[in-house]
Computed example of a mutant assay.
Amino acid sequence: MPLTNTTIKNARPRTKDWKLFDEKGLYLLVKTTGAKLWRMKFRHHGVERKLSFGPWPDVSLKKARELRDEARATLQDGLDPSRERKKAKSAARREARHTFAVLADEFLDKRQADGLADTTISKKNWLLNHLKSAIGSAPVNDISVPELLTAIQQVEAKDKRETARRLRSIAGEVFSYAIATGRAQTNPATQLRGALRTPQVTHIPAIIDVGQVADLMRAIDRCTGYPSTLAALRISPHLFQRPGEIRQMRWADLKLDDAQWVPRIDDLKMRKPHQVPLSTQALAIIEEMAALRNGPYVFPAFNSGERPISENTLNGALKRLGYGGKMTAHGFRTMASSLLNESGKWNPDAIERALSHKVGNTVSATYNRTLYWKERVEMMQWWSDWLDDLKAGKV
């Protein structure tokens, strides 16, 4: 006879454990302690097995019957419900360990092993820490689109739109990694495009007016201070490479007999081989620093020859010259790109290659690196000569 709630409630413990039977293998085990536990007896391939559904009243009679019916349906499929439950619990435990924070750290470790620069890793870690505080403990496979959006909007609400945009991007990288490694099925970050406010574009200050460039070059020549700072500032307009790459120039990277600078891959933002032709003006500045050489770097820090000048050194020097908000060390790239293109003398792809920008696909990029080398050598010397003429008032 099927059980009723009244029968269950009135069941009392005895000197030995005893059972109250329901239907289709379900029964209630009444312990000598008074505990009442749901059990199900079944056979799988002729072997008697048991399932536990939990204690009454935490698991009601109605719920126990639902669990029994689910187990019977599993049996109909030829599967052992006991084994399937263990597999499900094991999967749940694994999923619980695969939190967003765990996957984020694992992703960063992989990117570092791939050779990503320490500074880039540090920036990505800084971004991910914003998300970890909100969703770090959540299983990565359980994080919904609204949940991720809420976490990012907490940053966006502080009027940090660009940071919010970058958070969506880095979150997408983590979820893609989770999918690739079998820890997630979807990437909620991809569905947030258009959901965040558009960042306000802030252009890097740069001088591209010819007259103002002439004044800037003369101001740089008048600048006084630490030799490394002055040399790095003077060479920057001639090389127009990324400031972080210039400040980390090593003596070992220079091929002075060939008038080349070949930065280490680890020092390059694009992580692609890149050679820089050196004009006679650039070589002269490097030779001046050779007389002061006291470590591996061409532009060593003030208090240690084992470290390069800091990333803010050149911007600080430009500010002292009165160019704060008007020109930055990175602005020399914009200056060169604009004026070289405006001259009409050089192939735009050669200019892009000189700036270490990607030109074409992988195959054509490899070809172009060789194709434009001679033109780039001529262009770099022309550019340095033009800057000198500009400074002297000859242009």
Rank of each mutant, 00 (worst) to 15 (best):
T6V: 15
I8W: 01
R12N: 07
R12F: 02
R14G: 13
D17N: 11
F21W: 10
K24Q: 14
K24H: 14
L28K: 04
L29S: 09
T32A: 14
M40P: 01
H45E: 06
V47W: 00
K50V: 00
W56R: 01
L67S: 07
R68N: 09
D69Q: 08
E70D: 14
R72T: 03
A73G: 11
Q76S: 12
A88D: 05
E95T: 06
R97M: 12
H98A: 15
H98W: 04
T99S: 12
T99L: 10
L103C: 09
L103S: 02
L103I: 15
A104L: 08
D105C: 01
L108N: 01
L108I: 13
R111Q: 12
D114F: 12
L116G: 05
A117F: 08
T120F: 08
I121H: 10
K123Y: 05
W126T: 10
N129F: 00
S144K: 09
P146M: 03
E147M: 12
E147L: 08
A151Y: 05
I152E: 05
V155M: 01
D159P: 04
D159H: 13
K160M: 08
L167W: 07
L167Y: 07
V174W: 15
F175L: 06
A178W: 13
T190G: 05
Q191L: 13
A195Y: 14
Q200T: 03
T202Y: 01
P205H: 03
A206I: 11
V210E: 10
M217S: 01
I220E: 06
D221N: 07
T224N: 10
G225T: 02
Y226G: 05
Y226F: 14
L230N: 03
R234M: 14
I235K: 01
F240N: 07
I246E: 00
D257K: 09
R264M: 13
I265F: 10
D266P: 01
D267Q: 07
P273F: 12
H274D: 10
Q275V: 15
I285N: 05
E287N: 06
L292M: 10
N294E: 07
N294P: 00
Y297L: 00
N303D: 13
S304T: 14
P308G: 09
N315T: 10
K319T: 13
L321N: 03
L321T: 04
L321Q: 02
M335T: 15
S338V: 12
E342G: 04
G344M: 08
G344L: 08
K345M: 15
N347P: 12
P348T: 03
R353K: 03
H357Q: 08
N361D: 15
T366E: 04
Y367R: 08
K374L: 14
E375V: 14
R376T: 14
W383M: 06
W383L: 05
